[in-house]
Nucleic acid binder design. Structure first.
Length: 422
RNA sequence: GCCGGGGUUGCCGAGACUGGAAAGGCGCGAGCCUGGAGAGCUCGUUCUCGAAAGAGAUCAAGGGUUCAAAUCCCUUCCCCGGCGCCA
C-alpha cells in the first residue's frame, strides 16, 4: 500500500510511476483519490468539532451532578449531538472505503532500474549451456520410465497438476530441502516452519488482491487460506507490531509446502512437475531498516545464485520488467535455469524487494529516535523443489536413461544415481 | 468441546465491583545541572486532522446501553489453568 501522504504531497511521483507501467486506468484514480481525500478531511474536521463539543458538555454534566445541581438542560443539548455525528460519520466511512479501495490496488513505486516494457532484461549468466550427444527425455518421461513418480494416479484422486513422488525421487526432494536449509543456516538465516493456513486479514496484507482470487485455496466454512508460499506467513507474523531496531535485520529461512490454484493456466503444462498445485519450498525472508533493503536484495539474489551454481546448473538472472513485476515488489530478479529439453531458460527463483509496501498494509514498524517507521520486507526463493527437480532430471540424465545426483546432494541422499525402480 | 481466570500505551502494571480527564514504575529521547560522568529534576515518548494553536481517536476486535464506557450488556478472536477428546 502506498502512503496517502505521498499522493497528497507528491502526486507527480505516483503518476510518473503509473505512466512507466503504462497503467492508464489507475492513472485516472489519482485525481479521484485527491478529491475524495479533500472531502474526507473536511468531514473529519467537522466531526471532530462536534465530538469536541459533546465531550465538553458531557464533562460539564459530570461536574454539575457532582455538585448536586440540575443538569437536565445540558443533557438535552448533549443528546442531540450524537445524531449529527452519526450522519457525518456515515459519509466519512463511504469516502474512506473508496479511498482504501484505490489505495489497496495502487502498485508499489518502482526502483529506477526496473526495465520499462514487456521484456525482462538478462543481467547475468552463470555456468555453461550443457551439450548432449544423445536424445534427451523430458522429466515426465524420465519419472515414468524410472518409476519414481506417478502423475496418472495423482490425477485420479486429486486432479491434474498433482503428483506422487516415489522412491529415490522422494529422497532427492528431501535432500534438496535439507541441503538448502543448511546452506542458509550457515549464512545466518534462521530456519522456521510457518502455519500452512492464514486468515484473510493477514493475507490481504501480503498479497496482490487479484492474485488472492486466482491463487489461494480457501478452507470451507473457515476464515482460512492455504499459504501460497512461506513468504506470506513469515512476513505477516509481525502484523501490528513495533519492532526493536536491535532485532533487525530479521533473517529467516522458511520451510513449507506451498499451495496454488494456478487458475487461468488451463491447458498449459498440465502434466509434470513444472506447474503444480502443491510443492515444497525453502524461502528466504529479510525484514530490515529501509536504508539497508537494497543491500539485502542483492544478498538474497547472491544466496540463490550460489546455491544453484553449487548444483552445477546453468542459469541466467533477469531483471523483471514493468509488464511482469506485479503490484507488490519495487524490484524483482528471477533466476531462470536452462532446461535442455525445451531449450529454454525457465523460472526457478523470484527475488523481490517489497520496500515498505507490505509493511504499511500489515502495520509493521520499528522504533527510531525520530519516531516509529515502517520496515522494509524482502523475499526470495531459495529453492522450490519441484522446479529444481525438473532441472536436475533433465540436465543430469545419462544416455542409459538414469539420473546422476548432483555432487553436493550425495551426502544427503546416500546414493549417486537414480536408476529404474521396481 | 466444557468450566474458571485473563487481554490496558515500547515493557511492567493500577483503574472495573460503585460509568464522569488512562495512576505509577521501567526503558528510550530532549533539556537543566556537572570539569566530566552519574544521580537528581523538567518535559516528551501511539494514530489521525491541522501551517500552528489546538482538536479528535485509541484500553484484543466488533456491536449495544448512556449526555458520558477501559469500566455495564452481547458476539467473536487470542492467552493462562483445570476437565474431556486425541496423533
Amino acid at each position: 500500500m502506498l502512503d496517502i501522504n505521498l499522493i497528497r504531497n507528491n502526486p507527480e511521483i505516483v503518476r510518473s510511476d503509473l505512466e512507466k507501467r503504462g497503467d492508464k486506468e489507475k492513472l485516472l484514480w489519482i485525481d479521484e483519490i485527491l478529491e475524495l481525500d479533500r472531502e474526507w478531511r473536511k468531514l473529519k474536521s467537522k466531526t471532530d468539532e462536534l465530538r469536541h463539543r459533546r465531550n465538553k458538555v458531557a464533562l460539564e454534566i459530570g461536574i454539575l451532578k457532582k455538585e448536586g445541581k440540575d443538569a437536565s438542560e445540558k443533557i438535552k443539548e448533549a443528546a442531540e449531538i450524537p445524531k449529527e455525528i452519526e450522519k457525518l460519520e456515515e459519509e466519512m466511512k463511504s469516502k474512506r472505503e473508496k479511498i482504501d479501495y484505490y489505495l489497496k490496488r495502487l502498485p508499489n513505486i518502482l526502483h529506477e532500474s526496473v526495465p520499462v516494457g514487456e521484456e525482462n532484461v538478462p543481467v547475468k549468466f552463470v555456468g555453461e549451456k550443457p551439450e548432449f550427444d544423445f536424445e534427451l527425455k523430458s522429466h515426465i518421461d524420465l519419472v515414468e520410465s524410472l518409476n519414481i513418480g506417478d502423475f496418472e494416479r495423482a490425477a485420479k484422486i486429486s486432479g491434474s497438476r498433482f503428483f506422487f513422488l516415489k522412491g529415490k525421487l522422494t529422497v532427492l526432494d528431501l535432500a534438496l530441502q535439507y541441503y538448502a536449509m543448511e546452506f542458509m543456516l550457515r549464512r545466518g538465516y534462521k530456519p522456521i516452519y510457518p502455519p500452512y493456513m492464514m486468515n484473510r486479514k493477514a493475507y490481504e496484507g501480503v498479497t496482490d488482491l487479484r492474485d488472492f482470487e486466482d491463487v489461494m485455496y480457501k478452507i470451507e466454512d473457515e476464515d482460512l487460506y492455504l499459504i501460497a508460499t512461506s513468504e506470506h506467513p513469515l512476513t505477516a507474523m509481525y502484523m501490528n507490531e513495533i519492532l526493536n531496531p536491535d532485532d533487525l535485520p530479521i533473517k529467516y529461512c522458511g520451510i513449507s509446502a506451498c499451495f496454488r490454484k494456478e487458475a487461468g493456466t488451463h491447458g498449459r503444462e498440465t502434466k509434470g512437475l513444472f506447474r503444480v498445485h502443491q510443492f515444497n519450498k525453502i524461502e528466504q525472508i529479510v525484514i530490515c531498516e529501509p536504508e539497508e533493503s537494497w543491500k539485502y536484495h542483492e544478498e538474497l539474489l547472491k544466496n540463490a545464485m550460489d546455491l544453484f551454481e553449487s548444483l552445477k546448473l546453468h542459469f541466467r538472472v533477469v531483471n523483471i520488467c514493468t509488464g511482469d513485476i506485479g503490484t507488490v515488489a519495487a524490484k524483482k530478479y528471477d533466476i531462470e535455469v536452462w532446461m535442455p529439453v525445451q531449450r529454454e531458460y525457465r523460472e526457478v527463483v523470484s527475488c523481490s524487494n517489497c520496500t515498505d509496501y507490505q509493511a504499511r498494509r500489515l502495520n509493521i514498524k520499528y522504533r527510531t529516535k525520530e519516531g516509529n517507521k515502517f520496515v522494509h520486507t524482502l523475499n526470495s526463493t531459495c529453492i522450490a523443489t519441484t522446479r529444481a527437480l525438473v532441472a536436475i532430471l533433465e540436465n543430469f540424465q545419462t544416455p542409459d536413461g538414469s539420473i546422476t545426483v548432483p555432487e553436493v546432494l550425495r551426502k544427503y541422499t546416500g546414493f549417486k544415481k537414480i536408476e529404474k525402480e521396481k
